[in-house]
Design a binder for these strands. Structure first.
Length: 495
DNA sequence: CGGGGAGAG
DNA sequence: CATTCTCTCCCCG
């Protein structure tokens, strides 16, 4: 077996119409799992370009497949690095846009990854050279199997509206489509193929005052696998920080005052935890400084809907709110939290509450929320602090959570807690047949070469723009770290 | 910008 | 497993 054979094998596997091959899962125990020794010849971020044509061997794979293979290796590298260096497990989906990647990332949980294989042809698929054999888009097949409400961006309300439209009348009217007389789960396929369905129809269903502009076209794109939304850089500061609590019964001013004090206390502590930083100034020791101030405070309540005349309950999730400037004394570090809270409640929150509920009684709240927003960062070191402060965020979250957790089992000195969800039932709606990973294997570690080669890990706290490239000892090629194992496999195979 | 609806985790 | 809590994005006036 030589390189060509393996490429042929991969090629047939990747292009197979067999649904069980529609997805693949990288398995570090499977020596062929890489598929792709050759993919390592591509530039680090890139795809074959005019200036840097890929080696001939790559011509056997279409560009899309190559990109997906690279993505799979990168994902594998990230997951293993994350687990080895930080102890967190992760599940990854690899595809060509956020929508498809997110959905395919629901498979092989936990601690796995899945790549949605081509063909991705969106409209009509394409005819292969040996006849009019049309390959159906694997992306469409995958999407079609989902319940309409499972599509990210289609939430409870829109899903319900779409379902109402599709189920309104039986689809046997003028088309010969015989589906179950009354089916309860409306899939993406049901919607996509519904008579007259299209962006305009969806706009009619979902549009209206308050609806997102162009929502019909957007949803139509989504159910056709089209998603041009960009991956956003993580922000260092959130837009708002809020604390809320829900209540069975909250209908008197004294109760409200008490709860406002509780919430405000939590919020001030949150602000201290999240917005306060150890001052780096060596002159003064143990001083803190605000890395951001909030300009606005908002009080929201959710009134319990009174009660219908016939005694039925009208479920309402609606919140009402009032906002205003956040007084500066909340940032005074000399003052005690209790004193700050009391002033805030009396001077600010109470009057907001009276705007929301002018009557001294007659209301009953199921929720109250206090939020500080309009965060402005103080003149910071403007460090190149990109989004990559995940570990700090986790730590901060832990300490905050610990403070407010009533029952808090002792945390062992174990450096990293495992936060993976313990269960994930196989989605019944998600076309489980096609979802089987094609590779099984024991869970021993096989290729752990990254560490020896790559001394400075991805998450070294102080890595500052290392090129991230490594040189192959064998041939001297410069490669991104994640590609090195596959590249070594290439050398071992080329004889 | 303030108030609110919808949605993601 | 469902509910609660936190946060984001968007529309409208």
């Amino acid at each position: 077996m030589d390189v060509t054979d393996i490429v042929e094998y991969n090629q047939s596997l990747l292009n197979s119409n067999d649904p069980s091959h529609s997805f693949f899962q990288l398995d570090r125990n499977d020596p062929t799992a890489g598929f792709d020794f050759d993919a390592t010849w591509l530039p680090p971020h890139g795809y074959p370009s005019e200036t840097q044509p890929p080696p001939a061997i790559l011509g056997r794979q279409d560009v899309l497949t190559t990109r997906l293979i690279i993505g799979s290796h990168f994902a594998q590298y990230l997951r293993i690095s994350l687990e080895e260096q930080k102890g967190y497990t992760a599940t990854v989906g690899i595809s060509t846009n956020k929508l498809a990647s997110k959905l395919v990332g629901n498979l092989n949980k936990p601690r796995g990854q899945t790549t949605l294989l081509p063909p991705y042809a969106i409209n009509s698929g394409y005819a292969s050279s040996d006849g009019n054999n049309t390959l159906e888009s694997n992306l469409t097949k995958f999407l079609d199997s989902h319940d309409i409400g499972k599509i990210p961006g289609i939430g409870f309300k829109m899903a319900q509206q779409i379902r109402n439209h599709v189920l309104a009348r039986p689809p046997d009217f003028d088309t010969g489509l015989i589906y179950g007389p009354t089916k309860e789960s409306v899939t993406v396929r049901d919607v996509r193929l519904f008579p007259g369905m299209g962006p305009e129809t969806l706009e009619g269903i979902l549009g209206g005052p308050g609806a997102e502009r162009g929502i019909g076209g957007k949803v139509w794109n989504l159910i056709n696998g089209v998603d041009d939304s960009e991956v956003q850089q993580m922000r260092k500061m959130p837009y708002q920080i809020s604390i809320e609590d829900s209540y069975i019964r909250l209908d008197t001013i004294p109760q409200v005052l008490k709860e406002l004090r509780m919430l405000a206390t939590s919020l001030i502590k949150r602000m201290h935890a999240d917005l306060l930083e150890d001052d780096e100034d060596p002159e003064f020791e143990n001083t803190k400084r605000w890395i951001a101030y909030a300009k606005t405070v908002r009080l929201s309540t959710r009134p319990r809907p009174p009660l219908n005349t016939d005694g039925t309950r009208t479920r309402s999730f609606n919140r009402i709110s009032r906002s205003g400037p956040l007084p500066n004394f909340v940032f005074n570090l000399k003052e005690s939290i209790d004193a700050i809270v009391e002033k805030l409640v009396q001077e600010t929150l109470l009057s907001m509450f009276r705007k929301l509920h002018p009557q001294p009684s007659g209301w009953n709240l199921s929720l109250m929320n206090i939020c500080v927003t309009n965060l402005v960062e103080t003149a910071s070191e403007s460090s190149s602090s990109r989004g990559r402060d995940i570990s700090k965020m986790f730590k901060r979250q832990e300490t905050v959570l610990r403070e407010w957790k009533v029952e808090d089992r002792d945390v062992p000195p174990d450096p990293m807690p495992q936060k993976e969800e313990p269960y994930d039932q196989a989605e019944p709606s998600a076309g489980s047949d096609a979802m089987e990973s094609i590779m099984e294997g024991s869970e021993d570690a096989l290729c752990q070469t990254q560490n020896t080669i790559n001394d400075d890990g991805l998450w070294e706290d102080d890595d500052e723009d290392n090129e991230g490239l490594e040189r192959c000892i064998e041939c001297g090629a410069l490669l991104p770290g994640f590609a090195m194992p596959a590249h070594e496999r290439f050398h071992s195979l080329e004889e």
